[in-house]
Amino acid sequence: MLLAQATPGSFDTLLQQLGNGIAMGSVYALIAVGYTMVYGVLQLINFAHGEVYMLGAYYSYWPARWLGYVPDAGEKPSVPLYIVGLLFVAAMSACALTGMLIERLAYRPLRKASRLAALITAIGVSLLLQNLAQMAFSADPRGYPQLVQQTSVQLGPIALANTKLIIIAVAAIMMTGLHLFVQHTRPGSAMRAVSFDMRTARLMGVNVNRTIAMTFAIGSIMAAVAGMLVAMDQPRLTPMMGLMAGLKAFVAAVLGGIGSIPGAALGGLLLGVLEALVGWQKPEYTEAVAFAVLIVVLLVKPTGLLGKTGREKV
């Protein structure tokens, strides 16, 4: 059906759309990791995760502005590399703190409460952060410092912004690093233990509270990186930017199999590519498709592509 409509040159467009999709999907993957890890340990959809992503972008914006890299008018100066590094560190640590704070204040008191209470709290935290951000930063969209001079890179028929290539590369490195961390280090095993069975993990001497805090911190760090990368590529910050990105990343996490880090990566990429392909033919239904995919996956394979089959506890 799709190919029947093909016209000369549309094969190039298809390749281009695949490129676009992979770049979008990399961002989804970075955010999805946060959802998947938190769901893995707490069985909680951390609705506020999209807002952490939004804050990541703002946390790097303010120091940059303070240092004079976001002037009120005129050309933006380019930012030296060590400052870019510092901004990343600043945003990542601030987001890690935010994530841990959310967990400590809002979620920990509810750990024994019903999952619905936790879900509603998560929605509340999301609303709170969104509206606090709107009050503190104003609803006015803000530009972003020029961390990298944006140029167009030609890869055969595909033209992508260099910032997109950076997104793909950084996302790949971060996801691999995280996977290795979880699989091959002691804190990583602790996380897996808590996610497998919290009570047994505690009996085996794992500090559950600290492990959960760490899970939130790591997820938030990934979101901060995603926030900054996206801001570099699409330099416009608004307090609402986390809403849709968060929802879609959640869809990606479910698609890949919630609880699985490689699953989040796969789910993110698949969702990104799928959206690009739908957008190629029917751009007006991109959003609907993301949700339709979610529903279908939940119905057909609720554990997602790479998720483990859960046990029914009676």
Partner: peptide, 28 residues
């Protein structure tokens, strides 16, 4: 009917998706 297979927060997010799909379709 599909909700029969889902529970808890999965159901919540699937119904949220349903609402959004309705909105997108009307917009179009």
């Amino acid at each position: 009917i599909p909700a029969l297979r889902l529970r808890g927060d999965y159901l919540a997010i699937a119904t949220l998706g349903f609402g959004e799909i309705v909105r997108v379709v009307i917009t179009n």
